[in-house]
């Protein structure tokens, strides 16, 4: 039995603080990933040809984990940039900083990744401002170059460099969407929530100590909850949320409560929707 306040992975194998470009294979074993289809093979093929990849799919269905898994297998460092609406091209490419009495150029994470031959993952790229999405264009075609306008220079990508973006089609796409000219530069991989069987395996694997029965119930809850997508639920119950719920159960919380805090409360403030979700939970656990 673990000490209740121990963190889940207390082995100390991971670096707590590292450079923006981390070492390749930061962990001893490959991050756990359960393939949904042929995505592993497709990604490998794309990487062999150094074609940029777009991961499409709802939040929490395993896009990031997939990439971590692939980066480990391909033995490349993974640089992740979470995009947000204030993300400017400077945040990606780099900027001048003042040091002492002079200005110093500092590479942004994208530039660092380009130079180091890492896999650069721009997570939720639609969130970024359009001007920052355009700068990736020359990187994504045969040129594989990144212009640094402010310094008047251009960086040619390391031969191992690969650009990956993620893109959540259901998420605020009315107002924000990638330009078609951006989209067509990528190999598109569609992700969805894993099949029931797979999702159960994921839960059992991710959360040691979770019994198969609870896993099955959690997965069944998620199926039902996902059917409420068009009823005010912007983000449906994700595999990640299920893993959280499973973790809370394995930490000793009653199942209904665990689901409430991990599955219901985070995704909605809508009282009726929350009540409906709770009913679904209660129909499985009591």
């Amino acid at each position: 039995m673990n000490n209740p306040i121990d963190p889940p992975h207390a082995n100390g194998s991971e670096q707590r603080d590292h450079d923006i470009v981390p070492p390749a294979r930061p962990t001893a074993t490959a991050p756990y990933y359960e393939a949904q289809g042929r995505e592993v093979e497709i990604f490998e093929a794309a990487y062999r040809k150094r074609l940029p990849v777009m991961l499409k799919g709802p939040t929490g269905c395993g896009k990031t984990r997939f990439l971590e898994h692939m980066a480990w297998h391909l033995n490349r460092p993974l640089v992740t940039v979470s995009c947000h609406e204030d993300l400017t091209s400077s945040d990606l490419v780099g900027r001048f900083l003042l040091e002492g009495n002079e200005t110093v150029w500092q590479d942004g994470p994208l530039t660092r990744a380009v130079k180091a031959g890492a896999i650069c993952y721009l997570d939720e790229i639609v969130e970024a401002r359009t001007d920052s999405t355009v700068i990736i264009h020359p990187l994504t075609d045969h040129r594989r170059r990144l212009p640094l306008e402010k310094t008047g220079r251009e960086v040619t990508a390391h031969e191992d460099f690969l650009l990956v973006i993620s893109y959540n089609p259901g998420y605020q796409t009315v107002l924000k969407d990638l330009k078609p000219s951006t989209k067509q530069r990528f190999i598109g991989l569609n992700f969805d929530f894993p099949a029931e069987e797979t999702e159960r395996r994921i839960l059992v694997n991710e959360v040691p100590g979770l019994d198969a029965d609870s896993a099955a119930r959690l997965v069944s809850i998620a199926r039902k909850a996902r059917s409420l997508k068009d009823h005010g639920l912007d983000e449906v119950t994700s595999t990640r949320a299920l893993v959280y719920a499973a973790n809370m159960i394995s930490a000793g919380l009653p199942a209904v409560e665990a689901c409430q805090v991990a599955i219901i409360n985070p995704v909605t403030d809508d009282i009726e929707l929350a009540a409906a979700l709770l009913e679904i939970v209660r129909a499985h656990f009591e």
């Binding site: 059917s227 009726e272 929707l273």
Partner: peptide, 15 residues
Amino acid sequence: QNERFLKMLLTAWYG
């Protein structure tokens, strides 16, 4: 007054 809630339940259970 809870029509939406009840309908969501029906959607969840019966599709």
